[in-house]
Structures are given as C-alpha cells and as structure tokens.
Design a protein around this nucleic acid. Structure first.
Lengths: 175, 175
DNA sequence: TGCCAACGTTGGCCACGCCAACCATAACAG
DNA sequence: CTGTTATGGTTGGCGTGGCCAACGTTGGCA
C-alpha cells in the first residue's frame, strides 16, 4: 500500500481484446495431489479468490475493504487515534494515514487533533459514515454468500471456528 | 512475480535496530467483531500468516514454495511442457519460465525441446529433483504443524474438506 | 533539563500476480 | 499451397499490498 499512493484509479487501455491470449477458460488442469491436501496451499488459494471477489465488490461502490475495517473499528470502539486504528485492524501506520484521508475526503469520518495529546488525531465516524458502514455490511454479506455458496450455516460456523482457533494459536487474535 | 525477477536475494541493511519503532510486541488490540466473524477476513489473515511461515521455511533451505508446486506436479504427472506446469499449478507462463530456470540452475530438473512439437519445452525431474521433493515434503509437513498446531487430525481434515468445497465451488479445482 | 517513546506523515522497497508484446512453431481453412 | 489463427516460451513491465525508514512534533519521565 505504501509509497505515494492516494491514487487507486485504473486508467486501463480499454482497447480491443488482446491480440495474443484471449480465452478466459484455459481449461484448468487438476492440481497435484500434494497441493490439494495441503492446508496452507488451500488457504492461500481461497484467500486469493476472496481477495479478488472482495476487492471487486467494494470497488463497485467506490470503496475498499480496508475502509470497512476502519469504519467497523470506529463503530465498535468509538473515536480512536490512527495508531489504535492500525493496531485494531493490523494495518501499518502509514497505510492508516492514507485510508483515513480517503474516508475524510468522502465525508465518512472527521479528524480532529486530540486536545489532551496534541500528537494524536482523533478519528470519528460521521452520520454518513454510519450509513456507509451499513452499506458495507450488506456488501460483505453478499461476498460471503458468493464465496461460501454451497456451505450450510453450520459448516460456515465450523469454518469460522477452525480459522479462529488457528489465528488464535498464531497470536493474531485477542491473546 | 513478473519483470526481470530472477533475483530473490535480499541484501538487507542488517544495520542497528531501527531508531524509531522497535518493539516487536505492539500489544495487538482485539479486532472489530464484524471482522472476527467474517470468513473472508479470517481466510485472508490465515493466508497471510501461512504465506510468511511458508516463505521463511523454504527460504531456510534456499527454496521457494513455488518450486514445491512445480516439482510435485512433475513427480505426479511426469515430464510436462511449461504451459502445462503453469496450468496445473495456476501460475502464469512468465513465472513458470523463471521458476524453471531456477530449478534448472540447481539441477533439480532438465529441459529439452520437444522433438514432436518444437514450440514446447519438456521439463523433467532429475534424481536430485526427486530428493529435493522429499525434502520439500518434510518442510511442508513441518509448516502444517506450525500453522495448525492445536487442531486435531479430524479438525484438520474438516478444514481441508471445507476449503476444498469452497474452491471447487469457485471453479478453482478440477471441475 | 535532557532523553526516550509515541504519533502522524512522507517516501520508498520488494514480492506477487498478472498482462502485453514478440518470435517461433503448429494447426487449420480456403 | 497459402493465409489465418492459435499455442508455447521469453522478456519487459505494471499495479497492488504489506512493510520499513526517516523525520518533525509532542508527551512522559528520570
């Protein structure tokens, strides 16, 4: 995310279809069985799909999934410093700065200097931000549906449980 | 992976610890509950950990996980063209070219021109490649152990089953 | 008072996944 | 046979994501 990123506009050639490769269905061959039974491989592939689907779904409403994380954090824990936002969402400070600027520009948050500690910025949700978060909730629900399609409610819960335990063990969660 | 990548050496400053931030334990705050219950978020975080652990483990034996995929494919399906390798492991053609060069340089595969179709390269495992693959198997097993730590055998199998179903539904697997 | 830590900001790096272009070769249509 | 289309391998490049380094500002503490 770093660098002078502020621009996530993709001009794109938008020209004719490519001269060379075109087919969107290059008939995928089966994976090696060693990979098919490797949890780390499966998690990576699933994450890759999830990332693509999520990015597209949020882009369709001119948003980014990272915005969802920040607004969700603000809604649940109240106005926070950017450092706390980063800790809660496990984002780097520098990335939080950019994301907050984006949200600020769209009017979903407001940023004020903490009078009690003039190093801190206090980022707070605006009413428009609360509405945006509700929209994000709907988008996120649709994404889960598209991703987990055939899984029943109990299986989805089981998946969440297993992943949560793994993450907990890896020190990524509450601790 | 694209570009003139052939170099995955990381020089690294290796200097003193940073002047600014130092603490490796920035006391992680709990995630927003909206994210904690979002499968796509959990999968992404798990994948992130898995990627890091895997990359480190393979780097420790001067390898990359992508090498594992290619050698596994060659061992299971026999000598293949680079295009088939890419389809089987879902790698881009350009990335396969580089990976094969790396494996070639290390002596784990050999590359010959297909006499029946002079466009194709036939990539085949060498005896050293088979030994290397066995080493990769051991490393991969260790990685699963580190990642899935507290999960029992049945839970790991359930996780694999759920992820496989999701991937199947997403069109990423056999179909 | 002086030192160190934390915050926000800017700039940058690199791996990853992907695309575009190119040439050589093959397959196919007329 | 000939033109067209498709495939394979290679090189170069791009955009994103995650992260680090450095700096000025401010607060906490000895």
């Amino acid at each position: 995310m770093g660098g002078h990123r502020l621009t996530h506009d993709r001009p794109g050639p938008a020209g004719q279809p490519a001269i060379d490769d075109a087919g969107p269905h290059p008939d995928p061959l089966p994976w090696p069985s060693r990979l098919r039974s490797l949890p780390s491989w499966l998690v990576g592939k699933t994450s890759s799909h999830a990332h693509r689907v999520t990015t597209e779904a949020f882009a369709a409403i001119s948003a980014r999934k990272y915005h969802y994380a920040l607004l969700a954090s603000l809604a649940e824990f109240g106005p926070s410093s950017q450092a706390d936002l980063g800790r809660r969402c496990s984002f780097d400070r520098s990335d939080v700065a950019i994301l907050v600027n984006e949200l600020l520009e769209a009017g979903y948050v407001e940023r004020t200097q903490d009078p009690a500690d003039r190093r801190r910025n206090i980022v707070a949700l605006t009413p428009a931000g609360r509405e945006r978060l509700a929209e994000f909730d709907r988008v996120a629900a649709g994404i889960q549906e598209r991703l987990l399609g055939p899984l029943g409610a109990d299986e989805r819960a089981e998946l969440v449980r297993l992943l949560t335990r793994v993450l907990d063990h890896l020190g990524g969660v509450v601790h």
